[in-house]
């Protein structure tokens, strides 16, 4: 008898979660006034389906373009934040599904992916809400450059520690 196949097959949970995250991103971007993000959803799902990180990255990049456009058009701040949360989640969940398919092949398990997605959404949402609160507080007359520098400095510190 021939041995089992060991193809990289993403779990159904991974596909569904990526699709959901993508839809959240696209919906946020739409509300913010940008249509471009819609194209990213099927590409991201295709990337997970074919377990190809570059394809997933293209999909996420399209979602991100939606976020940027919405942000530059001065859409509703909440919509932009939701779109960005969806974009980050789409990458995180999608990449996790691809990595599971690579290391576990047909043994990939939906449950672990759901747990992962839950934890990441919780953290991302928390940070988004915190960022939004600071944004509300800060837009009370301070120079815009101060806000930008504040954020940029924080980002630089976290990132350089985090590479």
């Amino acid at each position: 008898m021939v041995a089992v196949t060991v193809e990289r097959v993403p779990s159904r949970a991974g596909l569904v979660l990526t699709g959901l995250a993508g839809l959240v991103a696209a919906a946020g971007a739409l509300l913010g006034g940008s249509v471009a993000a819609l194209a990213g959803v099927p590409v991201a799902i295709l990337g997970v389906y074919r377990t190809s990180r570059p394809v997933l990255a293209v999909g996420v990049a399209l979602l991100f373009v939606g976020v940027m456009l919405a942000g530059l058009q001065d859409g509703a701040p909440v919509a932009v934040l939701v779109a960005m949360v969806g974009t980050v989640l789409a990458w995180d969940v999608g990449e996790n599904a691809i990595s599971m398919a690579g290391q576990l092949r047909t043994g990939a398990s939906g449950r672990a992916e759901v747990v992962h997605a839950g934890a990441v959404s919780a953290v991302t949402l928390t940070v988004a809400i915190a960022g939004y609160s600071v944004f509300l507080l800060a837009s009370g007359g301070q120079p815009g450059i101060a806000l930008s520098l504040l954020v940029f400095g924080t980002v630089l510190v976290v990132l350089s520690l985090g590479r």
């Binding site: 940027m68 932009v80 960005m84 980050v88 940070v127 954020v151 980002v155």
Partner: peptide, 11 residues
């Protein structure tokens, strides 16, 4: 707004 969006990824 775009800067704000960037913050999300820090989580």
């Amino acid at each position: 707004l775009v800067v704000l969006a960037g913050v999300v990824g820090l989580g």
